[in-house]
Design a protein around this nucleic acid. Structure first.
Lengths: 142, 142
DNA sequence: TATTGTTATACTCTATAACTATA
DNA sequence: TATAGTTATAGAGTATAACAATA
């Protein structure tokens, strides 16, 4: 692949990512959660309680930024802070009953805009997309 | 694909996208251009002069937001506004000599962080990534 | 009346810096 | 001394609203 072609393809790729991010963001503005908020909720649901520092590391964010995200989720009642049993510095972030209900019920019924859109792709496209997701993750973490 | 699996895979996908966006953004903070800025520059290089409204449509943004992006690029001397010859309302946005040089020289030599990272993937991974880019574009524009 | 662009203002997401409390 | 968290402040990116000029 020539340097020019690579640069051009990369540029188109990042353009597509930008479109997607803006689209997800505008969906979030109306009623859904932001990308980071949904991701954090999904992680808490899957892996159980975690500290702010853990969550920040997982998202590649600063702890202060994650603190703000958690405060936003706390304000709408989806997560709560509980003191760590032995380490007085840490706060465990847990899903509330509302948060769990949102994960189990709302997502199963109404779903996010993106989940619906992906559901309508054919199987091979979904496979390509999710494979690419893994590649993107590696790129971002490298 | 079960609803739970789909939701989980979507969640992991958008997580990966979030990681990438934050990573690109932090590269941009040090010296590179933002995602939107690079994309606009690439478009001007490829398609020639365009109006703010055109560019906004292409990026899925509001014209006011694109105006801010263009002002930022103008301030660092990469683009300039020129009045449209016949339509007095429009301003044509063009690459300056600097902007063109950045596209032709700097990108070819130093490259962006992301282009470098993608260059190091093997061919089949790159293919998956760019195919996924097309799918993402369709999702975002739908 | 519709479109292009500008200005003013505000919101979201994330960052840096400075601090306290605990280990 | 290192780690977890909080608070304060700032920046980037984008949005909405109101407006002027032109078509």
């Amino acid at each position: 692949m020539s340097p020019e072609t690579l640069e051009s393809a990369t540029s188109e790729f990042i353009h597509a990512v930008g479109l997607l991010v803006r689209r997800v963001r505008s969906a979030a503005a109306s009623q859904e959660l932001s990308m980071t908020e949904s991701t954090v909720l999904a992680r808490l649901d899957k892996n159980g309680p975690a500290t702010i520092a853990d969550l920040a590391r997982a998202e590649g964010m600063k702890p202060q930024s994650m603190g703000a995200t958690i405060s936003a989720l706390e304000e709408i009642g989806l997560v709560e802070r509980k003191p760590h049993p032995t380490d007085g510095r840490q706060m465990n972030i847990e899903l509330t009953a509302s948060g769990l209900a949102l994960r189990k019920a709302t997502y199963a019924a109404k779903r996010s805009w993106l989940t619906q859109a992906i559901a309508q792709l054919d199987a091979s496209e979904r496979e390509t997309l999710f494979k690419a997701g893994d590649i993107v993750r590696r790129l971002a973490e490298q």
